[in-house]
Design a protein around this nucleic acid. Sequence first.
RNA 1: GCUCGAUUCGUCUAACGGUUAGGACGGCAGAUUCUCAUUCUGCAAAUAGGGGUUCGAUUCCCCUAUCGAGUACCA
Length: 511
Amino acid sequence: MATERRVRVRFAPSPTGPLHMGGVRTALYNYLFARHHGGDFILRIEDTDSHRFVPGAEQYIIESLKWCGINVDEGIEQGGPHAPYRQSERKEIYLKYALQLVESGDAYYAFDSSESLNAMRAEAEARGETFSYNHTVREKLETSLRLSPQEVQERIARGDQWVIRFKMPENKLVHMKDLIRGEVTVNSATLDDKVLYKSADNLPTYHLANIVDDHLMEITHVIRGEEWLPSLPLHYLLYRAFGWSDTQPLFAHLPLLLKPTGKGKLSKRDGDKMGFPVFPLQWTSPEGEVSRGYREDGYFPEAFINMLALLGWNPGGEQEIFSMDELIKLFSLERVGKAGARFDPEKAKWFNAQYLRAKSDEELGALLLPILREHGVRNCCIFLATKIAGLMKERAKFMSDFWDLTSYFFFAPEHYDEKVAAKYWKGENPARIAELKEVLAAVGDFTVENTEKATRDWIEANGLNMGQIMNSLRLALVGAGKGPGMFDVCELLGKEETLARIDRALERLGK
RNA sequence: GCUCGAUUCGUCUAACGGUUAGGACGGCAGAUUCUCAUUCUGCAAAUAGGGGUUCGAUUCCCCUAUCGAGUACCA
C-alpha cells in the first residue's frame, strides 16, 4: 500500500435526512486528519438510494459543515479534479466496473424478483434460520452462473430486472487492518453475495460506488463509523478483484456515539425524546416536523466541535478546551478510542459555558444587544450591553440565559419575591431603606465606589445589619434574591432609577 | 441465532508491565460574598468475572458475562 501519497480523505454522507452529531463527528475527524497531514478533505454525496432521497438534506449537510468550521476542499460546491462529487451524477461510471467484475468472474447477474427473495427469507425464518444469499444457494437460483450466456442476454434484452452480485469466495480468510482496531480476520464463508448494481434504477449500491469512487478520487484513508466494519471484508475483496489492492486506502472505523441513557446508539429520534439536540442545525422535515439544532439552542460552533472532538478521542493530557487549530495539530487516529462513547448533554452545556466566558465583554455585548431589543429594550447602547455582559457572563451558559439574568436592569420589578420579602421586608427594614434612599440621594457621582462608601459608612455609623439592609435593598431594586453586587446594580440603574425603585417598593410593599 | 467489535468512577477519559489508578462533567459537603450564580477547598465514586504468562498485571493470552454493530436490490 502506498503511504507516500498526498493524504486525501472524504466525508461521504447519504442525503436521506439531516446529518446528526455522529455524522458531524465523523466529518470532523476526517477534516482534522486531513489538515493535520496537509491533505485534502472531500465531500462526496452518496445519493445512490433513489427511494430514500430527502429534498433539502444535501443543502443541510453543506450548511452544517460550514457552521462547524469544517472547510471542504473538493465537493459539489467547490468542484475539483474528480468532479462530479454527487454519485447520482456519476451514474454512467459504475456499470462499466460492475461488468468488469462479471467478466473476471468475480460477480454475476441475478434475476430473482424481490418477491421471491422475500419468500425465501420468510421460509428460512420459519425454519429458525437466517437466509443468506451465498454459495450454497446461488447455483440453484436464476443467475448467470447457471443460465447460459445466451439466456442471460435474452433476459436482459427482454427487459427482465436484474442485479449484479459479488461472488463471495466460499471459504477464504480475509485479513484486514484497521488503524484503530488492529488486525481483523473474517472467513468469507460467513459473508453473502452483496448486490453491487441494480438495474431497476441503473445505480450501484454503496459497496460498489464507494470502492470505485474512493479509487478514482485517490482516497488514501477511509475514516467512517463502526457500523461499516462488518462490510470491510467485502470492500477488501472488491479492491482485490479490481486489482487495486496496492493503492487501496487505509481504513479506520470510529466507535459509535451512544445515547445518554438506555440502550443503543444515538439515533435521530432521541433528541426530542430526551431533551437535547442531536442535529447541528434545526431541521424541518418535508412533512413539516421540526427538530431542534445546536445552533438554534444557542451553542457556539467552537464549543460544539470541541465537545464532539473529545467524544471518542483525546490527546492525552488534562487540557479540555481546544481550538480547531489545536485539534488539527494534536489529532491522530492512534488516540481514537475503541469503545462506544455515551453522549452527555450536561457536559455539552459545560463546554458552551467555557466558551461563553472566554469571550470578551465587547463580543458578548454585541451578541446581547439584539437579544435585548427582541425583548423590547429600546434604551440600551452597545456600551451598556457590554458592561452588563461582562458583569453577568460568569452566570450564563448560553446567550439565551442573559435575558432572565438581566431583565431587571431594564424593567422595574412588577412583583416582589414573597419569600425574600417575608425575610427582609419586615420590622425596621422598610424605614431603614427609606433612610438609605436619602443617603444615596446625597451621593454625587453614582459609581460603585461612591455608593458603596456612602452606604457602608451609614450602616456602620448606625450599627445596622449589612445583610438585612442589602437584601432589603436588593428586593426593592431587583424584586428577587438574586443578581450581582448591589452597588453594581445601583451604578447600572443610575441614581434616578435607583431612587425611583426604592419609592416604588416602599409604596407596593409597605413602609 | 450467526459474524465482527468493545469492556477503567454514573458519564467522557488518562495511565501504552511497576502510580496512593490521575483529570473533567455531574453529585454531595464546606468556605467566601449583601442574595443568587461564580470561585475556592474537600468528599464519595472505577480497572466486568475467572483462569493463565510474569518478580510484578488496568496494560499481554484464553474462557465466561455484558454491551454494541452488522446480518436489505439502505447507506
